[in-house]
Simulated scan of single mutants.
Amino acid sequence: MTESKRKFEWVDKWAKMTGERARIDAKVHKTAIVYNTENGWVKEFYDGTIERINIEENRGGEMRETERISTIMLLLQRIWEQQPDVRFNQLISNLQQVYSAQNKGYGQRMIIEKGPFGDEIKSSYLDLFYLEDDKWEAFLQRIVDEREKAN
């Protein structure tokens, strides 16, 4: 038992770090995180307040339409077919850059990294985690429409 405890000890640390990252993201975006405790499900808001969630009450909420998946995938396919030499992740990265540029820098995150000599290096990355699918779909549709109009 001692050996397996040591072997998988990293999992507990990783889970805790993931939870902490979620709390930080919630504060940045002024949202909340939801998680299960010994006393049931709770919603923790960015300001630190916690409320219990009645799961039975909340089961009636609207589920996202599954049709959006095929619609978005078809739009991506149409865009990708117009530039087949581009790798898939390169395509997604390029599209995210364009989306961000067209939407006041949406998803732009500025960070300071430590350089190899301990110096601080300003850097940035895109995080579109909170972008709703309907906005992404509309953006992709505009790209398809513009390209078809140009041809």
Rank of each mutant, 00 (worst) to 15 (best):
E3F: 08
S4P: 04
K7M: 05
K7G: 04
K7W: 09
W10R: 11
W10K: 01
V11G: 01
K13F: 00
K16C: 07
M17Q: 13
A22I: 08
A22S: 14
I24E: 11
D25K: 15
D25F: 10
D25Y: 08
A26Y: 04
K27L: 14
K27Y: 11
K27T: 08
V28T: 10
V28P: 00
H29D: 11
K30C: 05
T37K: 13
T37R: 11
E38D: 10
N39V: 07
N39T: 14
W41M: 13
K43P: 01
K43V: 13
F45H: 13
G48E: 15
T49N: 13
E51L: 04
R52T: 11
N54E: 13
I55N: 13
I55G: 02
I55Y: 07
N58D: 07
N58Q: 14
N58S: 07
R59F: 06
E62Q: 10
E62K: 15
R64G: 04
T66V: 14
T66I: 10
E67F: 07
R68F: 13
I69Y: 15
I72S: 06
E81A: 15
E81P: 03
Q82Y: 09
Q83E: 15
Q83T: 13
P84T: 11
D85Y: 06
F88M: 10
F88C: 03
Q90D: 12
I92T: 03
N94P: 02
Q96V: 00
V98M: 12
Y99V: 08
Q102K: 15
G105V: 05
G105R: 06
Y106G: 01
M110C: 06
I111D: 13
I112S: 14
G115T: 12
G115F: 03
F117C: 05
F117H: 06
F117E: 08
F117G: 10
G118D: 06
G118Y: 03
D119Y: 09
E120H: 11
I121D: 03
K122D: 08
Y125C: 04
L126C: 02
D127L: 02
D127P: 03
D127Q: 00
L128V: 04
Y130L: 01
L131R: 03
L131N: 02
E132H: 07
E132L: 05
D134W: 05
K135G: 08
E137Y: 06
A138H: 09
L140H: 07
Q141W: 08
R142N: 12
R142F: 02
R142P: 00
I143Y: 06
E146D: 07
E148G: 00
E148A: 05
N151A: 11
